[in-house]
Design a protein around this nucleic acid. Structure first.
Lengths: 156, 156, 156, 156
DNA sequence: TTTT
DNA sequence: TTTT
């Protein structure tokens, strides 16, 4: 197939502490339960309504699994970027399917959104096992960044 | 909870023609099966490997459902933006859960990526029932857009 | 062209209070300055480095502009979804280009990420002028949502 | 600051062949010009309108730069994921700012969307220098994937 | 069941 | 300067 994309972006809160397990192979896996909510006003009744969705997040990246283990807990707010994967398993001889958001490899992200002191403020990508970026590869000939304040005289 | 985000972005191909149904309420629903694939080379064996993921997409937006009905078919490539939703149902008295990507309301998108002649090339947002944007609300005082060519003398 | 997509997703903090203006046409515009930062360890020197990027966000959606006016202030953390637009203007007879993230129409989002009490926790889409969703259009035949707790007997 | 996110997602077409340069340091950089378009019907006049936005994309990832060099050309359709960066430079003694979408490091992506025969169909992440994923790290205890067909008896 |  |  010409290229495809499979991406999930969540901002939500952990419904429980992370469950972290070591694997026989030496790796680590962390499982998170994340809630996202939406609120809206019902057009007919005019009453406030809310709906919460629960997501299963599985972190196979060792660096990110450690971040989860060390910094996340029930209630933590996180930004998550991963892929959808559905796996099959059996229960009482019946096929069951579970869909998860998998963080594994280069196109994953886990960023803590709580204020410092409430559990963190770091962000990490999945491809580097705990080290975000090993070098700024921007060529030295490139002009340095400079923000430009709100008061630059650019006409809004 | 302070705000949350629940977003899925897919680029993939339809595994079958869309299934479109009319609802008693007068609305429409379209169901799509979309495949995303990834290929990689196994580190140990060196052999090429591939994995395909199948996604269930449900379109509750009438405008987008009509686009699906009129322009998409088996094999069509699409860009999809929606939300994750898991619903419960029963089978032989056992609870089953199915996770779908739902396109409904303002934060959904369906864009055809095939070249014209292969099934279309329009794009539509979910919130407008077939009409993307009714007006350019950019205030008239804002300077008009002008791209700037590749050959502008901006130092790459 | 067959369909295209132009999307920016930011999570960052306001560098200043929002600037909100009323337009002659009766509409509103809000301008935000948002900072995103990344930190990494330099591969060569081993020292911690940081880089901050400043973004110009322009909100043409009246509902979202009001949210910005009423709930956001310097330091607020937000999730932003919009489009890239570059506009041209003049300064001393020279062409200048400014690139902004524009929130306008159905595919925009502004979600406050601060804890309640620090400035809010609502989320709104751009297409509805202050009302997120007017109805849950999920057909009544669809099974109701039910989360399934971390302790469901699904084998992690 | 607690974590932030800076992400751009584009689907569009190249306005010109990629410009690829080698760096003194031995690296490579590719520059792309990408167009995204939107069409809508004017609410007042009823006429069809179109707007094209031009984006500057800079690829510092060597693997992705080679993909650009070898497979992309004027007209190619691509999916791009990168970060916003604004850099400053001078022209006639005046400060100029240019905003680019930078692909560098683990959270970048470049996926070709043309059908094979029109220029390719591979996809690559930025963090691996040409090799997407070296191993499927899903633990062997995890049940294998199996899609579930459209005709499974799940009630749509 | 798609696609390459 | 792309694409439809």
């Amino acid at each position: 197939m010409s290229g495809s994309v499979n991406k999930v972006i969540l901002v939500g809160n952990l419904g429980a502490d992370p469950e972290v397990r070591s694997l026989p192979s030496g790796g680590m896996v962390a499982n998170l339960r994340i809630a996202t909510s939406e609120r809206w006003r019902d057009r007919n009744t005019g009453e406030q309504r809310e709906r919460t969705e629960w997501h299963r997040v599985v972190i196979f990246s060792e660096g990110l699994a450690k971040v989860a283990q060390n910094y996340l807990k029930k209630g933590s707010k996180v930004y998550i970027e991963g892929q959808l994967q559905t796996r099959k398993w059996e229960k009482d001889g019946q096929d069951q399917y579970t869909t998860e958001i998998v963080l594994q490899g280069f196109n994953s992200n886990l960023t803590m959104l709580d204020a410092r002191g409430e559990g963190g403020g770091d962000s990490m990508g999945g491809g580097y096992g705990g080290q975000r970026q090993t070098e700024n590869r921007r060529p030295s000939s490139a002009p340095a960044f400079e923000p430009g304040g709100m008061d630059d005289d650019i006409p809004f």
